[in-house]
């Protein structure tokens, strides 16, 4: 499992996961915001490095992509 969070909420997500004893869950951090942008713009953010980082996280090799 990997969490997906925007950069504005990355610190919050880490704090929340730590509080809930899930601090080891890898996070993929993407550009803020996601809400209120056009579908094409959202799709354009799914760059190769994001996919690589998500796959790495799913394979227990934590990485912190930024798109």
């Amino acid at each position: 499992m990997v969490g997906l969070v925007t950069e504005q909420f990355a610190g919050f997500a880490r704090e929340l996961l730590a509080q809930r004893n899930a601090g080891s869950l890898p996070l993929a951090v993407v550009q803020h915001p996601v809400g209120g942008i056009r579908r094409e713009e959202a799709a354009a953010r799914i760059t190769d490095d994001v996919i690589v980082a998500v796959v790495a996280a799913l394979q227990n090799a934590p990485a912190e992509p930024r798109s």
């Binding site: 610190g11 919050f12 704090e15 929340l16 509080q19």
Partner: peptide, 10 residues
Amino acid sequence: GGAIAGFTDK
């Protein structure tokens, strides 16, 4: 509950 304004209360 740990809901801290600006930190965990977003």
